[in-house]
Amino acid sequence: MDKFEVLRSAAVPLPIENIDTDQIIPARFLKATSREGFGENLFRDWRYDSEGSPIEGFALNDSRYAGKILVAGKNFGCGSSREHAAWAIYDAGFKVVISSYFADIFKGNALNNGLLPLVVSDEMLQRLFVQIEKDPKTELIVDLPAQEFYVPLWEERVSFEIDPYKKECLINGYDDIDFLVNQKEAIEAYENNRPWAY
């Protein structure tokens, strides 16, 4: 996993609510047995028509928008638990997704893959959409060590929440597997002492 510290980037806006993981990566693209290459099919059915031609008007096909930050409507990532959704977003070059609300499983999957799900207020989200629409080149800054997010153009900085352990993991590029494997002793002790063993 790559390390994450401070990110400055323009953003791609997707002002749609309840974007589910079936839209992020449709099931028919889940047949691969490796983690690579899912970015190609990110938002496949919104991005391309049945002939494979880009659909005009969709943000990812719009040359005005570029960057490593995806800004999306509330309840992003609901539905299927497929981690392929987080892989596809990351593989397509995004490092941060901003929304006012994330589905739980998606949030966990993103964090496990170096993709930061950043929660802002509904009001902030709307302001961001307006700002990006006005000037697609607007730079956004995500400072993970300081847990701050801001648009240099604006006055205020907003702090965001992240579990301290998860933050460490992102900054250092660690993941839960390393951590859990190191807990073997405690796990074995638990197994020998379970209130009810199945």
């Binding site: 638990s81 497929r82 981690e83 392929h84 987080a86 499983i105 966990g108 999957n109 496990n112 893959n113 993941d175 839960d176 597997i177 859990l180």
Partner: peptide
């Protein structure tokens, strides 16, 4: 759970 958690 996601695939990373499956590994865990």
């Amino acid at each position: 759970i996601g695939t990373s958690q499956v590994t865990q």
